[in-house]
Write a protein that binds this DNA or RNA. Structure first.
Lengths: 124, 124
DNA sequence: CGAACCCCTCTCGTCGACGTGAGGGTTCAC
DNA sequence: GTGAACCCTCACGTCGACGAGAGGGGTTCG
């Protein structure tokens, strides 16, 4: 798959895809003419990356945890030394904190919307 | 409360606090000498803001939803016109998408950690 | 053959969220 | 009353995540 197609498939700009490669997030191989050649399933990886960037994770951290997010296919832990596990666990905690923050605020918005809609209904 | 104290209390830099004011996220009043005077509870608001910024929300959106996050105290919906409710609902959906993304990835890390630790245990 | 449409690299610009002084007033302890 | 520790307002610098364009090559269609 060439970069343009991947871009259309994911809604991520060509420039951004090249940037992700620069940052080591994704590694397409190259065709004879120098064109990037993305493998099957690259679109899911890109959506994954986009989601995490939207959630405020810097590319450095995404690069670090991406190997462990590829699903149960390769759950064979690649060289799990203890410090590395600690680091992954720390990132897990970071994600957890973000989740708690977002959930709290989503719930607050829900409560507001509920109250506002009831108020609107009562006024009719 | 002066800005330095609030900074120490929240771990947010003085510069960032001034920036939040610039962006209309928080409105301290001023003492006679021109010093910002933050009210009781400002620290919680600041932590709120920090959390959302860490989660990738731009200040513009935080400014929009902040009025509806202040807890059940003022659940009296301030002027809820229909389009505004739609916009709040849309922001709610945005939060929800981010949450789903983070939860999926946190779970993936959990699965990895579990497998890795089991592997480590089995090898001893 | 040439025009249209891909793709490449490189470089400079931009935007949000601050960091970092410069230059100057305030308050408090001694 | 002076030095240290705050505070203020500009204003410029920075860093990450791209946008936008220059300059050039590949391929496909009529």
């Amino acid at each position: 798959m060439k970069i343009g197609e991947l871009s259309r498939l994911t809604g991520v700009s060509v420039r951004a895809l090249r940037y992700y490669e620069e940052e080591g997030l994704i590694r397409p191989d190259r065709a004879g003419n120098g064109y990037r050649d993305y493998c099957e399933g690259a679109d899911e990886v890109v959506r994954q990356i986009r989601g995490l960037i939207d959630c405020g994770l810097p590319t450095r951290i995404i690069r670090d945890i991406l190997p462990y997010l590829d699903g149960p296919a390769d759950l064979l832990p690649p060289v799990p030394c203890a410090e590395m596990l600690d680091q992954v666990a720390a990132e897990r905690e970071q994600l957890d904190r973000r989740i708690h923050c977002l959930v709290r605020n989503r719930n607050a918005l829900d409560a507001y919307l509920k109250a506002a809609r009831r108020a609107a209904r009562d006024r009719t």
